Computed example of a mutant assay.
Amino acid sequence: MNQLDCSRPFEELPEEARVKIEEMQWNQERKKLGLPTSDEMAMHPILKQSWTCEGSPFSGPFDPSSYSNLER
């Protein structure tokens, strides 16, 4: 983000930069609404698999809300 030329209009930025900015805006809006961000959503399947594997220290049904508040 620090490498972006903020003096250029959004439309003139490279596609990669525009995509990253849009993703950051989307994640910021999701956080404001108390919803999971794209990173948190990608983490859910991994955590669910770890939650239910043999020898897991977690107990009870998988509940993503139990860990998402720790990240904020």
Rank of each mutant, 00 (worst) to 15 (best):
N2V: 00
N2I: 02
N2D: 08
Q3W: 04
Q3T: 12
Q3L: 11
L4Y: 09
D5L: 09
C6D: 01
S7D: 11
S7Q: 10
R8D: 03
R8M: 14
R8I: 01
E11T: 09
E11W: 06
L13S: 00
P14M: 02
P14L: 02
E15H: 01
A17D: 04
A17E: 08
R18V: 05
R18N: 08
R18M: 07
V19T: 12
V19R: 15
K20F: 07
K20P: 00
K20M: 11
K20V: 06
I21V: 12
I21E: 01
E22C: 12
E22D: 04
E23N: 12
E23H: 06
E23V: 02
M24E: 15
M24G: 14
M24R: 11
Q25D: 10
N27A: 09
N27K: 06
Q28E: 11
Q28W: 10
E29F: 08
E29V: 02
R30H: 04
K31A: 13
K31C: 04
K32G: 01
K32E: 12
L33C: 01
L33Y: 01
L33M: 10
L35R: 14
P36K: 06
S38L: 14
S38D: 13
D39L: 14
E40T: 04
E40F: 03
E40K: 06
M41N: 13
M41F: 03
M41V: 15
A42F: 07
A42T: 04
H44Y: 09
H44W: 11
P45L: 05
I46L: 14
I46K: 14
I46N: 03
L47S: 01
K48V: 01
Q49V: 05
Q49W: 09
Q49N: 08
S50K: 13
S50F: 11
S50P: 00
S50E: 12
W51E: 04
T52F: 08
T52I: 07
C53Q: 15
C53A: 14
C53W: 03
C53M: 15
E54Q: 15
E54L: 11
E54S: 10
G55W: 08
G55D: 02
F58V: 06
F58Y: 15
F58A: 14
F58H: 09
S59A: 11
G60A: 03
G60I: 02
P61V: 02
P61I: 05
F62V: 06
F62S: 04
D63V: 07
D63N: 15
D63C: 06
D63T: 05
D63W: 00
P64T: 01
P64E: 10
P64C: 03
P64F: 07
P64H: 10
P64G: 01
S65Q: 10
S66Y: 05
S68W: 09
N69Y: 11
N69C: 08
L70Q: 13
L70W: 10
